Amino acid sequence: MDKQYDLIVIGGGALGAFHAYHALQAGLSVALIEKDKQPVGATVRNFGQVVPSGMDTKWQNYGRESLKLYNDLQSRFDISVRKNGSVYLASNEEEVQLIEELSLINKGNDYESHLLTKEQCLDKYPGLRNDYVKAGLFFPEEVTVEPRVMINRLLEYLISQKGLIYFSNTKVIRCEAWGDEVEIETAGGEVFKSKKVLLCCGSEFKTLYPEVFAKSDLEVTKLQMLQTKPQAGYTLNGSILTGLSIRRYEAFYECPSFKAIKAKENPDSFEKKWGVHILFKQALDGSVIIGDSHEYADAANIDDLGFDLRMDIDEYMIEEAKKIFNLPTFEIQNRWFGMYSQCKENDIFQHTVDNNIHIVTGIGGKGMTGSAGFSKENIKQIFNLS
């Protein structure tokens, strides 16, 4: 017998799961189909830093809505949220100027932040090197999550508490509109019908709609990250973003001095070539995650990025990290890379097929921070909800 729903979401990562959440909140019947046993893509391969502070004004608003949802979910069901704030550490006078300008912008946005003196930074963050930091900008409302824990607990919550119908290890091979409904077929021969379909998985986008995929402006980013062994007796709270992050994150593009400061940078430097900026986050086991880098290819040429880890990038990130923090150990226990898709010209890829099939992907590095807030608005638009 055909299974029928108001909405079928294809892809169980953050973008798909939060769309499912908001549809369920609106009283819709929702099925979510995930091709793997559990999500294994970009959602589980990032830092787990929820930092609206790093986004431009549009996406900061989505991120702030996401913060509300993360905190609300955590109050009901442990999804690993820790409200421990984010800090941007300036290492020279140019970066100090940028954090001061961003502080003023956030006052105008009514988003709480606090400028920290050098001494306050050194006092707040153990091991921070005196010869690196000049000042900091702290955002107390921001949170961290453990990505691999968060997404699976979120799905568990949606299934047990909200009535989500979840199919894992299920590959969609056909998605077609028939009048006012959509019919999808899985590799196992099951047929599902719904009023709407949301496709939030890049690989199945490529499989199901190859012509649309080929014409899209999607590109794929490969990021390398490292994880130290647990740091005995050491605590590093929150998301730590440093000078190279200040020079890279979109929020700073809105600062009056940003363009002139960027123009002075050496375009041939190693960090420019590989898109390196240094981030730190302590995981629940006491280890510290360090990263990351950015290597790009058109989505159609994802294989050009390869599957190897570049040791020169890892070594560079470790050496730069040592200039910022004196951690008890820099012995590395894990190394990995993540992949995410983003648009070259737009902030997210959206395309509608036959009115009722909505492709939403390419959220880029904004996924963990922006998905929850963006999905709330998008579900309202798709279903014409007030």
Rank of each mutant, 00 (worst) to 15 (best):
Y5L: 05
I8R: 04
I10W: 09
I10R: 07
A14S: 10
G16P: 10
H19L: 14
L24A: 10
L24T: 05
L24D: 04
L28G: 10
V30M: 07
G41P: 02
A42M: 11
A42Y: 02
R45V: 15
N46G: 10
G48A: 09
Q49L: 14
S53H: 14
M55C: 09
D56N: 13
R64W: 10
R64N: 13
S66D: 05
S66W: 05
N71E: 15
Q74H: 13
R76G: 04
F77A: 14
F77Y: 15
F77I: 11
I79F: 12
S80F: 06
S80N: 06
R82G: 04
K83R: 15
N84P: 14
N84W: 13
A90E: 03
A90R: 00
E94Y: 15
Q97S: 14
I99E: 01
E101D: 00
L102P: 01
L104A: 08
I105F: 06
G108E: 05
G108W: 06
Y111E: 07
T117Q: 11
T117D: 10
E119F: 13
Q120F: 03
L122A: 13
L122D: 03
K124V: 10
K124C: 03
Y125L: 15
V133H: 02
L137Y: 08
F138D: 12
T144D: 01
Y157M: 15
L158G: 11
Q161M: 15
F167S: 05
S168W: 01
R174V: 06
R174P: 01
D180V: 06
T186N: 00
A187Y: 09
G189T: 00
E190K: 02
F192A: 13
K193V: 13
K193G: 07
L199Y: 15
G202Q: 15
E204I: 12
T207R: 14
L208Y: 01
Y209W: 11
Y209P: 04
P210S: 07
P210F: 07
A214V: 09
K215W: 01
S216W: 03
D217H: 13
K222V: 04
L226C: 11
L226K: 01
P230T: 03
G233E: 03
T242K: 01
L244N: 14
L244M: 09
R247L: 08
R247T: 05
C255D: 06
P256S: 10
F258H: 12
K259S: 11
A260G: 14
K262N: 15
F270T: 08
E271S: 09
K272R: 15
K272P: 06
I278F: 02
F280M: 02
A283I: 07
A283G: 11
D285C: 05
G286E: 06
V288A: 03
I289H: 08
I289G: 07
E295K: 00
E295H: 04
A297Q: 12
A300M: 03
D304S: 09
F307V: 03
L309D: 00
I313M: 01
M317C: 05
E320K: 15
E320H: 12
A321V: 11
K322T: 09
N326I: 12
T329N: 14
Q333L: 09
F337M: 11
M339D: 09
Y340L: 12
Q342D: 00
Q342V: 08
N346S: 06
F349G: 03
D354C: 08
I359P: 00
V360K: 07
V360F: 12
G370C: 14
G370F: 05
S371E: 02
S371N: 11
G373A: 12
K376Q: 07
N378P: 00
I382D: 08
